[in-house]
Design a protein around this nucleic acid. Sequence first.
RNA 1: GUGGGUGUAGUUCAGUUGGUUAGAACGCCAGAUUGUGGAUCUGGAGGUCGAGGGUUCAAAUCCCUCCAUCCACCCCA
Length: 439
Amino acid sequence: MAAFLPPRGMRDFYPEEYRLRETIFTAWRDAARTHGFESYDAPVVESMELLERKAGEEISEQIYTFQDKSGRRLALRGELTPSLARMINARQRELAFPLKWSAIVQCFRYERMTRGRKREHYQWNLDIVGEESVMAEAEVICTAVDALQRLGFSCSDLQVRVGSRALLGELFALCGLVPEQYSACFLVLDKRGKIADEEIASLLADAGISKSRIGPILDMTSIRTLEEAQSRAGASSRAISDLRELFTVAEPMGFRDDLVFDISIVRGLGYYTGIVFEAFDTGRKLRAVFGGGRYDNLLSLLGGDRMPCVGLGFGDVVVAELLAECGKTPRTSPRVDCAVGFMDAASRDIAMRVAACARQSGRECDTTLAPEKAKVFFKRANRIGAQHAIFIGPDEAATGRIHVKNMATGVQVECSIEGLAASLSAGKDQDTDSTDGHQ
RNA sequence: GUGGGUGUAGUUCAGUUGGUUAGAACGCCAGAUUGUGGAUCUGGAGGUCGAGGGUUCAAAUCCCUCCAUCCACCCCA
């Protein structure tokens, strides 16, 4: 038994797991780049003060906190948004808005673990800062759906459920609530279906909401369609027209089929102000794969000018589970263009020359570090996924003629060291010709 | 934090009412093949049975404590 394990909730990535992680990261990066997002990064350690300024959350219980040797109160970030807000605020006069930023960062959370939830995960963040219109929501969702497609998912696997805090706010106002009471109502509605209505009623009462209004609030969760919502909110509802516009533009953007209106989506984070959304697997067996929404007040809350923002967070843990659940986990194996080995000390320098030659021609090349038997070398070459294997023994060292073995076909061709690049290319063409003909 | 499950080889797991030297598969190593991988065959290595304590002539097995881990709830990225 291993004496040491990773700290609770933390993960090691062995090469096999690392390859899966890279597959996910690549889908994220490619989708972001394809949609014109710029990459950025921020420190994994932030000041507690920044995190605490983010209203309405009992953070310090749930994040890793510590003091540095000067007594500064610091924390491992639990999410990237406060750092983003800090960065934007610091250069609010110089940045050109709207801007579209993407980052893949590791976030930490000190909490109990369950399925799909560790104490650390990698999260892809997409944010659009400085855009008032619902095009910002459309663009981040479209980009996230793009990434899902790159991983092999289709709209039959996932649904993006869209709600709106702005809509709920309008409906609350019609019930006679004041804005200060909204956030308590959001949290309570989020619990609808999880706890009994009587408990919800008493929670609302605790928030200072009079009895006569509790019924109408609970009743809101029975709204199923946008039309129904409109009939309550009224024809002039800004929230409804935003939602309608999102669904409309999703059509030409290609993700209309993934969208579903769901008034019960409110999200746990306190800073959301408008449209909010979460993507779930169709079977609803797992947690949200990604989620996000509009947070127009966070930057001003942290000392900047008011700035409309839309953000999206997409974690690696749940999507990996969903890949497994759907049988779509890509089968990855190690791969390298060629491997070079040598039989004895006298052959070493020729082998290294051959390897250098291969690398100069742009090939990936693994080399044996010590003399080994041919059998051991070829076995290892096979294991590391070498497409070609070149074994140097006394004969090759003496004549300068080397044998390039195509590991897929077993065919071995002889060439000079200078002719190596050509042989590797020839073998490569052969490989692709011999496959099913794709690409 | 609550409830339940599980801890045996590198991995996944068997292991009978407590009873002799704890097994299998896969993986690993070696040989068959002294310069050629994947397939096959043969052999080998590898275990303080999660830790500590208790009951017993005898504990992987029963009891207690702790630790780890998984699932559900709670909470949330």
